[in-house]
């Protein structure tokens, strides 16, 4: 990917990680991917009262080449899904995705032929934000949680180690329908 991948692990890498995380989280530029009602709440979050400019995020880049955060705001229909994937692919790494609203996280109230049941069928999602639509303050909370996540992201060999661990945990995890909770 870049210089940071070639650094050996150790003290130097952890300092670079801290610095890179700090820089990246403080200058996230969202790509405009407002689809439906959540888009209006996203615009309201960028408006005067709930100000996204305090994070430097009021510039919604229309071109995905210049954006690093895609806030999928609204219901993704089957016709829109390839477009979503293409926009995601056109973004340059590092990139993050917030699934805003119930429809983007899981299909929401529309469990039918037309809507993709959760945008994580198409793109990897970092933060899921429930709500129908989530208030602008909830969106800002999601962004802050994303900031924390970016701040602590690992680079280089540390990153590969973490990715392997997460994959192994996911492969060995119990599937949801086999978990017997309080209901069983």
């Amino acid at each position: 990917m870049g210089l940071e991948e070639k650094l050996p692990s150790g003290l130097v890498l952890s300092t670079v990680e801290k610095l890179a995380g700090y820089m990246r989280k403080n200058s996230l530029w969202p790509a405009t991917f407002g689809l439906a009602c959540c888009a209006i709440e996203m615009m309201a979050a960028g408006g005067g009262r709930y100000d996204l400019a305090r994070f430097g995020m009021e510039v919604f880049r229309a071109s995905p080449r210049q954006a690093d955060l895609m806030i999928v705001a609204g219901r993704v229909s089957n016709k829109m899904a390839p477009v979503l994937r293409q926009i995601y692919d056109q973004m340059a790494a590092p990139k993050w995705v917030i699934a805003m609203g119930a429809c983007a996280s899981s299909g929401g109230m529309f469990n039918n032929y037309a809507i993709v049941q959760g945008v994580d069928h198409i793109v990897p999602v970092d933060i899921y934000l429930p709500g129908c639509p989530p208030r602008p303050e909830a969106l800002m909370d999601a962004i802050l949680k994303l900031h924390e996540k970016i701040n602590t992201e690992k680079l280089g060999p540390n990153r590969e180690k973490i990715i392997k661990e997460v994959e192994l945990a996911a492969m060995n995890a119990k599937p949801t329908h086999a978990m017997k909770g309080l209901l069983a």
């Binding site: 689809l35 439906a36 009602c37 609204g74 219901r75 229909s77 016709k79 829109m80 477009v83 109230m109 529309f110 039918n112 032929y113 037309a114 809507i115």
Partner: peptide, 26 residues
């Protein structure tokens, strides 16, 4: 057009009349 087609009209056929309000509002 059609990139936001949600099938709301078909969804209302499987809910009762009052629940239809929550679909139709969106």
């Amino acid at each position: 057009i059609g990139y936001l087609h949600t099938g709301i009209e078909k969804n209302t056929e499987y809910r009762n009349w009052t629940q239809g309000v929550t679909f139709v509002t969106r």
